[in-house]
Design a protein around this nucleic acid. Structure first.
Lengths: 229, 229
DNA sequence: AAATTCAATTGATCGAGATCAATGAACGAA
DNA sequence: TTCGTTCATTGATCTCGATCAATTGAATTT
Protein backbone atom coordinates (compact mmCIF):
# COMPACT_ATOMS: atom_id res chain seq x y z
CA UNK A 1 0.00 0.00 0.00
CA UNK A 2 1.14 3.54 -0.62
CA UNK A 3 2.97 4.03 2.63
CA UNK A 4 4.93 7.01 1.44
CA UNK A 5 2.01 9.07 0.14
CA UNK A 6 -0.16 8.50 3.21
CA UNK A 7 2.77 9.48 5.36
CA UNK A 8 3.34 12.74 3.62
CA UNK A 9 -0.32 13.63 3.61
CA UNK A 10 -0.53 13.15 7.35
CA UNK A 11 2.80 14.76 8.17
CA UNK A 12 1.79 17.81 6.17
CA UNK A 13 -1.56 17.90 7.90
CA UNK A 14 -0.20 18.91 11.27
CA UNK A 15 3.07 20.54 10.57
CA UNK A 16 3.65 23.80 8.70
CA UNK A 17 7.11 22.63 7.87
CA UNK A 18 6.75 19.13 6.52
CA UNK A 19 9.92 17.03 6.49
CA UNK A 20 10.93 13.85 4.76
CA UNK A 21 10.30 10.43 6.23
CA UNK A 22 12.16 8.99 9.16
CA UNK A 23 14.75 7.23 7.09
CA UNK A 24 17.51 9.72 7.86
CA UNK A 25 17.17 9.32 11.63
CA UNK A 26 16.98 5.56 11.39
CA UNK A 27 20.02 5.46 9.12
CA UNK A 28 21.97 7.68 11.49
CA UNK A 29 21.15 5.79 14.65
CA UNK A 30 20.53 2.29 13.40
CA UNK A 31 22.55 -0.79 12.67
CA UNK A 32 23.37 -1.45 9.06
CA UNK A 33 22.87 -5.01 7.82
CA UNK A 34 23.49 -6.82 4.56
CA UNK A 35 21.17 -9.83 4.43
CA UNK A 36 21.59 -12.57 1.77
CA UNK A 37 18.55 -14.14 0.08
CA UNK A 38 16.42 -16.22 2.41
CA UNK A 39 18.31 -15.23 5.56
CA UNK A 40 16.63 -13.85 8.63
CA UNK A 41 17.70 -10.39 9.75
CA UNK A 42 19.37 -10.54 13.17
CA UNK A 43 20.29 -7.25 14.76
CA UNK A 44 22.86 -7.15 17.55
CA UNK A 45 20.84 -4.68 19.56
CA UNK A 46 18.00 -7.08 20.14
CA UNK A 47 15.92 -4.42 21.82
CA UNK A 48 12.35 -4.54 20.67
CA UNK A 49 10.29 -2.92 19.13
CA UNK A 50 12.29 -2.25 16.02
CA UNK A 51 11.94 -0.04 12.99
CA UNK A 52 13.73 -0.97 9.80
CA UNK A 53 14.51 1.00 6.68
CA UNK A 54 14.99 -1.05 3.52
CA UNK A 55 17.78 0.65 1.60
CA UNK A 56 17.76 -1.89 -1.22
CA UNK A 57 16.21 -5.26 -1.99
CA UNK A 58 13.03 -6.65 -0.47
CA UNK A 59 12.01 -8.25 2.81
CA UNK A 60 9.02 -10.01 4.33
CA UNK A 61 7.76 -9.81 7.89
CA UNK A 62 6.33 -13.19 8.81
CA UNK A 63 4.39 -14.73 11.65
CA UNK A 64 4.70 -18.42 12.37
CA UNK A 65 1.54 -20.35 13.24
CA UNK A 66 2.26 -23.72 14.77
CA UNK A 67 4.88 -25.59 12.79
CA UNK A 68 3.82 -25.58 9.17
CA UNK A 69 1.66 -22.51 8.73
CA UNK A 70 3.00 -19.07 7.93
CA UNK A 71 1.29 -15.73 7.51
CA UNK A 72 3.14 -12.88 5.85
CA UNK A 73 2.31 -9.70 7.74
CA UNK A 74 3.92 -7.26 5.35
CA UNK A 75 6.38 -6.90 2.52
CA UNK A 76 9.04 -4.22 2.60
CA UNK A 77 10.50 -2.91 -0.62
CA UNK A 78 13.23 -0.42 -1.50
CA UNK A 79 12.94 2.87 0.41
CA UNK A 80 10.12 1.57 2.58
CA UNK A 81 10.01 1.29 6.36
CA UNK A 82 8.73 -1.58 8.43
CA UNK A 83 8.16 -1.62 12.18
CA UNK A 84 7.27 -4.36 14.63
CA UNK A 85 7.58 -5.43 18.22
CA UNK A 86 8.44 -8.89 19.38
CA UNK A 87 6.90 -8.93 22.83
CA UNK A 88 3.84 -10.65 21.44
CA UNK A 89 2.22 -14.06 21.41
CA UNK A 90 3.23 -14.47 17.79
CA UNK A 91 6.89 -14.96 16.83
CA UNK A 92 7.78 -12.54 14.05
CA UNK A 93 10.74 -12.73 11.71
CA UNK A 94 12.14 -10.36 9.13
CA UNK A 95 13.44 -12.38 6.21
CA UNK A 96 15.17 -11.32 3.00
CA UNK A 97 13.25 -12.01 -0.22
CA UNK A 98 16.26 -10.90 -2.20
CA UNK A 99 19.73 -9.91 -1.07
CA UNK A 100 19.12 -6.61 0.64
CA UNK A 101 20.60 -3.78 2.63
CA UNK A 102 18.63 -2.69 5.64
CA UNK A 103 19.08 -0.40 8.61
CA UNK A 104 17.41 -1.31 11.89
CA UNK A 105 16.90 0.87 14.90
CA UNK A 106 15.14 0.13 18.15
CA UNK A 107 12.25 2.46 18.84
CA UNK A 108 13.66 3.01 22.31
CA UNK A 109 16.82 4.33 20.69
CA UNK A 110 14.87 6.47 18.27
CA UNK A 111 12.70 7.81 21.06
CA UNK A 112 15.73 9.50 22.64
CA UNK A 113 15.86 11.89 19.72
CA UNK A 114 12.18 12.63 20.09
CA UNK A 115 12.90 15.37 22.59
CA UNK A 116 15.58 16.98 20.42
CA UNK A 117 13.56 17.01 17.22
CA UNK A 118 9.86 17.52 17.68
CA UNK A 119 9.09 16.70 14.07
CA UNK A 120 10.73 13.33 14.46
CA UNK A 121 7.92 12.24 16.75
CA UNK A 122 5.29 13.38 14.29
CA UNK A 123 6.90 11.51 11.47
CA UNK A 124 7.22 8.38 13.57
CA UNK A 125 3.54 8.65 14.44
CA UNK A 126 2.66 9.13 10.78
CA UNK A 127 4.75 6.08 9.96
CA UNK A 128 3.04 3.89 12.52
CA UNK A 129 -0.38 5.13 11.49
CA UNK A 130 0.41 4.26 7.92
CA UNK A 131 1.49 0.76 8.94
CA UNK A 132 -1.71 0.40 10.96
CA UNK A 133 -3.70 1.44 7.94
CA UNK A 134 -1.96 -1.12 5.74
CA UNK A 135 -2.52 -3.86 8.25
CA UNK A 136 -6.22 -3.07 8.54
CA UNK A 137 -6.70 -3.02 4.81
CA UNK A 138 -5.29 -6.50 4.79
CA UNK A 139 -7.74 -7.56 7.52
CA UNK A 140 -10.54 -6.74 5.09
CA UNK A 141 -8.78 -8.68 2.36
CA UNK A 142 -8.24 -11.78 4.51
CA UNK A 143 -11.59 -11.64 6.24
CA UNK A 144 -14.00 -10.83 3.46
CA UNK A 145 -12.51 -11.17 0.00
CA UNK A 146 -12.57 -14.01 -2.52
CA UNK A 147 -9.42 -15.53 -3.99
CA UNK A 148 -9.87 -13.51 -7.16
CA UNK A 149 -10.29 -10.25 -5.25
CA UNK A 150 -7.25 -11.01 -3.11
CA UNK A 151 -4.96 -11.69 -6.05
CA UNK A 152 -6.23 -8.63 -7.93
CA UNK A 153 -5.71 -6.43 -4.85
CA UNK A 154 -2.25 -7.85 -4.36
CA UNK A 155 -1.22 -7.09 -7.92
CA UNK A 156 -2.56 -3.55 -7.76
CA UNK A 157 -0.75 -2.98 -4.50
CA UNK A 158 2.51 -4.20 -6.02
CA UNK A 159 1.90 -2.02 -9.06
CA UNK A 160 1.72 1.08 -6.87
CA UNK A 161 4.86 0.11 -5.03
CA UNK A 162 7.37 -1.47 -7.39
CA UNK A 163 6.05 -1.49 -10.95
CA UNK A 164 7.32 0.39 -13.96
CA UNK A 165 4.13 1.83 -15.46
CA UNK A 166 3.98 3.20 -19.04
CA UNK A 167 0.75 4.08 -20.88
CA UNK A 168 -1.43 1.97 -18.66
CA UNK A 169 0.83 -1.07 -18.82
CA UNK A 170 2.65 -2.14 -15.66
CA UNK A 171 5.74 -4.30 -15.64
CA UNK A 172 6.45 -6.13 -12.40
CA UNK A 173 9.54 -8.04 -11.37
CA UNK A 174 8.22 -10.18 -8.54
CA UNK A 175 10.74 -10.58 -5.73
CA UNK A 176 8.64 -13.30 -4.06
CA UNK A 177 7.62 -16.85 -4.93
CA UNK A 178 4.08 -18.14 -5.41
CA UNK A 179 4.27 -19.63 -1.94
CA UNK A 180 5.04 -16.22 -0.48
CA UNK A 181 2.18 -14.64 -2.38
CA UNK A 182 -0.08 -17.38 -1.03
CA UNK A 183 1.18 -16.94 2.54
CA UNK A 184 0.49 -13.25 2.26
CA UNK A 185 -3.06 -13.68 0.91
CA UNK A 186 -4.20 -16.58 3.10
CA UNK A 187 -4.41 -18.94 0.13
CA UNK A 188 -2.45 -21.90 -1.30
CA UNK A 189 0.10 -21.82 -4.13
CA UNK A 190 -2.29 -23.74 -6.36
CA UNK A 191 -5.09 -21.21 -5.91
CA UNK A 192 -2.76 -18.29 -6.58
CA UNK A 193 -1.49 -20.03 -9.71
CA UNK A 194 -5.02 -20.75 -10.93
CA UNK A 195 -6.06 -17.15 -10.38
CA UNK A 196 -3.06 -15.89 -12.33
CA UNK A 197 -3.84 -18.33 -15.15
CA UNK A 198 -7.39 -17.06 -15.23
CA UNK A 199 -6.22 -13.46 -15.48
CA UNK A 200 -3.90 -14.54 -18.28
CA UNK A 201 -6.77 -16.23 -20.13
CA UNK A 202 -8.82 -13.03 -19.84
CA UNK A 203 -5.97 -11.07 -21.39
CA UNK A 204 -5.47 -8.98 -18.27
CA UNK A 205 -1.85 -9.97 -17.80
CA UNK A 206 1.12 -11.84 -19.23
CA UNK A 207 3.90 -13.70 -17.48
CA UNK A 208 7.48 -14.16 -18.63
CA UNK A 209 9.37 -16.72 -16.63
CA UNK A 210 8.69 -17.00 -12.92
CA UNK A 211 9.11 -13.43 -11.87
CA UNK A 212 8.22 -11.08 -14.69
CA UNK A 213 4.60 -10.09 -14.86
CA UNK A 214 3.05 -7.59 -17.27
CA UNK A 215 -0.33 -6.12 -16.45
CA UNK A 216 -2.03 -5.14 -19.69
CA UNK A 217 -5.34 -3.91 -18.32
CA UNK A 218 -5.10 -2.12 -14.99
CA UNK A 219 -8.69 -0.85 -15.13
CA UNK A 220 -10.13 -4.31 -15.51
CA UNK A 221 -7.91 -5.62 -12.72
CA UNK A 222 -9.15 -2.78 -10.55
CA UNK A 223 -12.75 -3.76 -11.24
CA UNK A 224 -12.10 -7.27 -9.89
CA UNK A 225 -11.06 -5.75 -6.61
CA UNK A 226 -14.48 -4.76 -5.23
CA UNK A 227 -13.27 -1.45 -3.85
CA UNK A 228 -13.80 2.01 -5.22
CA UNK A 229 -10.14 2.85 -5.87
CA UNK B 1 -5.94 -8.19 22.95
CA UNK B 2 -4.24 -6.84 26.04
CA UNK B 3 -3.73 -3.31 24.79
CA UNK B 4 -3.18 -1.86 28.22
CA UNK B 5 -0.48 -4.29 29.34
CA UNK B 6 1.49 -4.06 26.10
CA UNK B 7 1.27 -0.31 26.33
CA UNK B 8 2.66 -0.12 29.81
CA UNK B 9 5.44 -2.53 29.06
CA UNK B 10 6.61 -0.44 26.13
CA UNK B 11 6.12 2.92 27.79
CA UNK B 12 8.18 1.75 30.75
CA UNK B 13 10.85 0.43 28.42
CA UNK B 14 12.03 3.82 27.23
CA UNK B 15 11.05 6.21 29.94
CA UNK B 16 12.42 6.33 33.46
CA UNK B 17 9.26 7.99 34.59
CA UNK B 18 6.41 5.95 33.14
CA UNK B 19 3.04 7.65 33.00
CA UNK B 20 -0.48 6.41 32.55
CA UNK B 21 -2.07 5.96 29.14
CA UNK B 22 -3.16 8.80 26.92
CA UNK B 23 -6.72 8.88 28.15
CA UNK B 24 -6.25 12.03 30.23
CA UNK B 25 -4.97 14.08 27.29
CA UNK B 26 -7.67 12.80 24.98
CA UNK B 27 -10.35 13.52 27.56
CA UNK B 28 -9.03 17.04 28.07
CA UNK B 29 -8.75 17.96 24.42
CA UNK B 30 -11.38 15.78 22.82
CA UNK B 31 -15.05 15.95 22.08
CA UNK B 32 -17.35 14.07 24.42
CA UNK B 33 -20.07 11.97 22.82
CA UNK B 34 -22.94 9.86 24.12
CA UNK B 35 -23.79 7.31 21.46
CA UNK B 36 -26.99 5.18 21.66
CA UNK B 37 -26.96 1.48 20.70
CA UNK B 38 -26.36 0.87 17.04
CA UNK B 39 -25.60 4.50 16.20
CA UNK B 40 -22.50 5.62 14.36
CA UNK B 41 -20.22 8.03 16.21
CA UNK B 42 -20.05 11.36 14.38
CA UNK B 43 -17.62 13.93 15.72
CA UNK B 44 -18.01 17.58 14.80
CA UNK B 45 -14.34 18.04 14.23
CA UNK B 46 -14.22 15.75 11.26
CA UNK B 47 -10.47 15.97 11.10
CA UNK B 48 -8.93 12.60 10.52
CA UNK B 49 -7.07 10.59 11.89
CA UNK B 50 -8.89 10.27 15.17
CA UNK B 51 -8.17 8.68 18.49
CA UNK B 52 -11.07 7.69 20.73
CA UNK B 53 -11.23 6.80 24.38
CA UNK B 54 -14.14 4.58 25.40
CA UNK B 55 -15.24 5.82 28.81
CA UNK B 56 -18.11 3.34 29.10
CA UNK B 57 -19.91 0.84 26.91
CA UNK B 58 -18.49 -0.87 23.84
CA UNK B 59 -17.86 0.06 20.22
CA UNK B 60 -16.82 -1.61 16.99
CA UNK B 61 -14.64 -0.21 14.23
CA UNK B 62 -15.92 -1.57 10.94
CA UNK B 63 -14.88 -1.56 7.31
CA UNK B 64 -17.48 -1.86 4.60
CA UNK B 65 -16.69 -4.10 1.63
CA UNK B 66 -19.01 -3.51 -1.30
CA UNK B 67 -22.61 -3.38 -0.19
CA UNK B 68 -23.29 -6.46 1.89
CA UNK B 69 -19.96 -7.47 3.35
CA UNK B 70 -18.55 -6.08 6.57
CA UNK B 71 -15.28 -6.68 8.36
CA UNK B 72 -14.90 -5.65 11.98
CA UNK B 73 -11.42 -4.21 12.41
CA UNK B 74 -11.48 -3.92 16.19
CA UNK B 75 -13.69 -3.85 19.23
CA UNK B 76 -13.27 -1.14 21.85
CA UNK B 77 -14.35 -1.79 25.42
CA UNK B 78 -14.47 0.29 28.57
CA UNK B 79 -11.22 2.17 29.26
CA UNK B 80 -9.74 1.16 25.94
CA UNK B 81 -8.51 3.41 23.16
CA UNK B 82 -9.07 3.04 19.45
CA UNK B 83 -7.41 5.01 16.67
CA UNK B 84 -7.98 5.18 12.93
CA UNK B 85 -7.62 7.41 9.92
CA UNK B 86 -10.19 7.85 7.22
CA UNK B 87 -8.08 8.92 4.30
CA UNK B 88 -8.02 5.37 3.04
CA UNK B 89 -9.57 3.29 0.31
CA UNK B 90 -11.77 1.58 2.87
CA UNK B 91 -14.63 3.48 4.56
CA UNK B 92 -14.39 3.01 8.30
CA UNK B 93 -17.12 3.62 10.86
CA UNK B 94 -17.17 3.62 14.63
CA UNK B 95 -20.45 2.16 15.81
CA UNK B 96 -21.87 1.66 19.29
CA UNK B 97 -22.41 -1.98 20.33
CA UNK B 98 -24.11 -0.76 23.50
CA UNK B 99 -25.01 2.74 24.63
CA UNK B 100 -21.63 4.28 25.33
CA UNK B 101 -19.72 7.36 26.31
CA UNK B 102 -16.69 8.13 24.23
CA UNK B 103 -14.22 10.97 23.84
CA UNK B 104 -12.71 11.58 20.43
CA UNK B 105 -9.72 13.72 19.58
CA UNK B 106 -8.06 14.32 16.25
CA UNK B 107 -4.44 13.29 16.21
CA UNK B 108 -3.59 16.67 14.73
CA UNK B 109 -5.07 18.28 17.82
CA UNK B 110 -3.28 15.89 20.11
CA UNK B 111 -0.01 16.45 18.27
CA UNK B 112 0.01 20.09 19.36
CA UNK B 113 0.63 18.98 22.93
CA UNK B 114 3.47 16.75 21.79
CA UNK B 115 5.93 19.61 22.13
CA UNK B 116 4.75 20.57 25.59
CA UNK B 117 4.78 17.10 27.06
CA UNK B 118 7.50 14.86 25.72
CA UNK B 119 6.03 11.79 27.34
CA UNK B 120 2.76 12.32 25.53
CA UNK B 121 4.46 11.46 22.25
CA UNK B 122 5.91 8.30 23.70
CA UNK B 123 2.58 7.16 25.02
CA UNK B 124 0.90 7.89 21.72
CA UNK B 125 3.57 5.87 19.96
CA UNK B 126 3.09 3.03 22.43
CA UNK B 127 -0.65 3.19 21.83
CA UNK B 128 -0.28 3.01 18.06
CA UNK B 129 2.25 0.21 18.32
CA UNK B 130 -0.15 -1.73 20.47
CA UNK B 131 -2.95 -1.22 17.95
CA UNK B 132 -0.61 -2.35 15.19
CA UNK B 133 0.23 -5.43 17.21
CA UNK B 134 -3.44 -6.28 17.70
CA UNK B 135 -4.20 -5.81 14.04
CA UNK B 136 -1.34 -8.07 13.01
CA UNK B 137 -2.37 -10.81 15.39
CA UNK B 138 -5.72 -10.74 13.69
CA UNK B 139 -4.06 -11.04 10.29
CA UNK B 140 -2.71 -14.39 11.45
CA UNK B 141 -6.15 -15.38 12.69
CA UNK B 142 -7.93 -14.45 9.45
CA UNK B 143 -5.23 -15.73 7.15
CA UNK B 144 -4.23 -19.01 8.66
CA UNK B 145 -6.61 -20.26 11.35
CA UNK B 146 -9.56 -22.66 11.22
CA UNK B 147 -13.05 -21.72 12.41
CA UNK B 148 -12.46 -23.51 15.70
CA UNK B 149 -9.16 -21.75 16.31
CA UNK B 150 -10.72 -18.39 15.48
CA UNK B 151 -13.61 -18.77 17.88
CA UNK B 152 -11.33 -20.06 20.64
CA UNK B 153 -8.93 -17.16 20.14
CA UNK B 154 -11.81 -14.72 20.16
CA UNK B 155 -13.17 -16.05 23.45
CA UNK B 156 -9.74 -15.97 25.10
CA UNK B 157 -9.21 -12.43 23.91
CA UNK B 158 -12.56 -11.37 25.34
CA UNK B 159 -11.72 -13.15 28.57
CA UNK B 160 -8.58 -11.07 28.98
CA UNK B 161 -10.45 -7.88 28.25
CA UNK B 162 -13.91 -7.99 29.77
CA UNK B 163 -14.45 -11.23 31.71
CA UNK B 164 -14.93 -11.72 35.42
CA UNK B 165 -12.55 -14.59 36.19
CA UNK B 166 -12.75 -16.61 39.42
CA UNK B 167 -10.91 -19.88 40.07
CA UNK B 168 -10.36 -20.61 36.41
CA UNK B 169 -13.94 -19.90 35.42
CA UNK B 170 -14.63 -16.86 33.25
CA UNK B 171 -18.02 -15.17 33.00
CA UNK B 172 -18.59 -13.10 29.90
CA UNK B 173 -21.41 -10.71 29.11
CA UNK B 174 -21.15 -10.43 25.34
CA UNK B 175 -21.90 -6.93 24.10
CA UNK B 176 -22.04 -8.10 20.47
CA UNK B 177 -24.32 -10.34 18.42
CA UNK B 178 -23.35 -13.56 16.65
CA UNK B 179 -23.29 -11.61 13.42
CA UNK B 180 -20.75 -9.22 14.86
CA UNK B 181 -18.61 -12.07 16.11
CA UNK B 182 -18.78 -13.57 12.64
CA UNK B 183 -17.91 -10.28 10.94
CA UNK B 184 -14.94 -9.97 13.23
CA UNK B 185 -13.66 -13.51 12.58
CA UNK B 186 -14.29 -13.70 8.84
CA UNK B 187 -16.97 -16.38 9.27
CA UNK B 188 -20.77 -16.67 9.07
CA UNK B 189 -23.24 -16.61 12.00
CA UNK B 190 -24.02 -20.27 11.41
CA UNK B 191 -20.41 -21.31 11.68
CA UNK B 192 -19.90 -19.29 14.85
CA UNK B 193 -23.02 -20.82 16.34
CA UNK B 194 -21.93 -24.34 15.45
CA UNK B 195 -18.51 -23.79 16.96
CA UNK B 196 -20.05 -22.54 20.18
CA UNK B 197 -22.39 -25.54 20.28
CA UNK B 198 -19.42 -27.82 19.83
CA UNK B 199 -17.58 -26.18 22.71
CA UNK B 200 -20.75 -26.56 24.78
CA UNK B 201 -20.94 -30.26 23.92
CA UNK B 202 -17.33 -30.70 25.01
CA UNK B 203 -18.13 -29.12 28.33
CA UNK B 204 -15.79 -26.21 27.73
CA UNK B 205 -18.47 -23.56 28.10
CA UNK B 206 -22.08 -22.82 28.97
CA UNK B 207 -24.43 -20.20 27.59
CA UNK B 208 -27.26 -18.46 29.39
CA UNK B 209 -29.50 -16.49 27.10
CA UNK B 210 -27.99 -14.67 24.17
CA UNK B 211 -25.26 -12.76 25.86
CA UNK B 212 -24.03 -14.58 28.94
CA UNK B 213 -21.26 -17.04 28.38
CA UNK B 214 -19.41 -19.03 31.03
CA UNK B 215 -16.07 -20.57 30.18
CA UNK B 216 -15.53 -23.60 32.39
CA UNK B 217 -12.20 -24.78 31.03
CA UNK B 218 -9.84 -22.01 29.99
CA UNK B 219 -6.86 -24.36 29.60
CA UNK B 220 -8.66 -26.56 27.14
CA UNK B 221 -9.90 -23.54 25.21
CA UNK B 222 -6.32 -22.30 25.07
CA UNK B 223 -5.18 -25.60 23.62
CA UNK B 224 -7.62 -25.20 20.71
CA UNK B 225 -5.94 -21.96 19.81
CA UNK B 226 -2.73 -23.29 18.25
CA UNK B 227 -0.54 -20.63 19.81
CA UNK B 228 1.83 -20.98 22.72
CA UNK B 229 0.10 -18.49 25.02
C1' DA C 1 -49.50 -14.27 30.63
C1' DA C 2 -49.98 -14.28 25.65
C1' DA C 3 -48.46 -12.51 21.37
C1' DT C 4 -45.00 -10.72 18.42
C1' DT C 5 -40.51 -10.28 16.77
C1' DC C 6 -36.00 -11.01 15.98
C1' DA C 7 -31.80 -13.64 17.10
C1' DA C 8 -29.70 -18.14 17.59
C1' DT C 9 -29.56 -22.87 16.69
C1' DT C 10 -29.82 -26.93 13.90
C1' DG C 11 -30.25 -29.52 9.61
C1' DA C 12 -29.47 -30.35 4.50
C1' DT C 13 -26.96 -29.24 0.60
C1' DC C 14 -23.62 -26.70 -2.14
C1' DG C 15 -19.30 -24.82 -3.67
C1' DA C 16 -14.84 -22.25 -3.32
C1' DG C 17 -10.68 -23.28 -2.25
C1' DA C 18 -7.67 -27.04 -0.13
C1' DT C 19 -5.42 -31.22 -0.81
C1' DC C 20 -3.39 -34.85 -3.41
C1' DA C 21 -1.04 -36.08 -7.57
C1' DA C 22 1.14 -35.55 -11.96
C1' DT C 23 3.22 -32.86 -15.51
C1' DG C 24 5.78 -29.07 -17.37
C1' DA C 25 8.74 -25.09 -17.34
C1' DA C 26 12.72 -22.20 -15.28
C1' DC C 27 16.91 -21.70 -13.52
C1' DG C 28 21.54 -23.08 -11.76
C1' DA C 29 25.49 -26.11 -11.95
C1' DA C 30 28.82 -28.81 -14.31
C1' DT D 1 24.54 -27.66 -23.84
C1' DT D 2 22.61 -31.15 -20.79
C1' DC D 3 21.44 -32.68 -16.41
C1' DG D 4 19.15 -32.17 -12.14
C1' DT D 5 16.57 -29.70 -8.98
C1' DT D 6 13.16 -26.69 -7.74
C1' DC D 7 9.16 -24.07 -8.68
C1' DA D 8 4.82 -23.31 -11.21
C1' DT D 9 0.97 -25.08 -13.55
C1' DT D 10 -2.80 -28.12 -14.33
C1' DG D 11 -5.99 -31.88 -13.19
C1' DA D 12 -8.89 -34.82 -9.95
C1' DT D 13 -11.01 -35.15 -5.75
C1' DC D 14 -12.15 -33.87 -1.09
C1' DT D 15 -13.53 -30.93 2.75
C1' DC D 16 -14.55 -27.09 5.57
C1' DG D 17 -17.26 -23.55 5.88
C1' DA D 18 -21.03 -21.09 3.12
C1' DT D 19 -25.61 -21.06 1.75
C1' DC D 20 -30.39 -22.23 1.97
C1' DA D 21 -34.16 -23.54 4.92
C1' DA D 22 -36.70 -24.65 9.09
C1' DT D 23 -37.15 -24.59 13.85
C1' DT D 24 -36.33 -23.12 18.40
C1' DG D 25 -35.73 -19.87 21.89
C1' DA D 26 -35.13 -15.42 24.06
C1' DA D 27 -36.40 -10.83 24.83
C1' DT D 28 -39.94 -7.17 24.15
C1' DT D 29 -44.58 -5.51 23.68
C1' DT D 30 -49.39 -5.57 24.66
Amino acid sequence: MPAASALHKFAASFSDEPRGPLSSEVQQLGEFLHVPVGEIAKFHSSEKPLIVFVASGAVKLTAQVGLDREQIIAFGFREEMIAWSENSRVPYELQALTACKIVGCSLAELAKTLTKDEYCAERLIAQLLSALEDSRERLVLLGRMTAQERVASFLLDLTERIAAVRNGIAVLDLPMSRREIADSLGLTIETVSRQLSQLREHGILQTNGRSELVILNLDQLCRLTSRSK
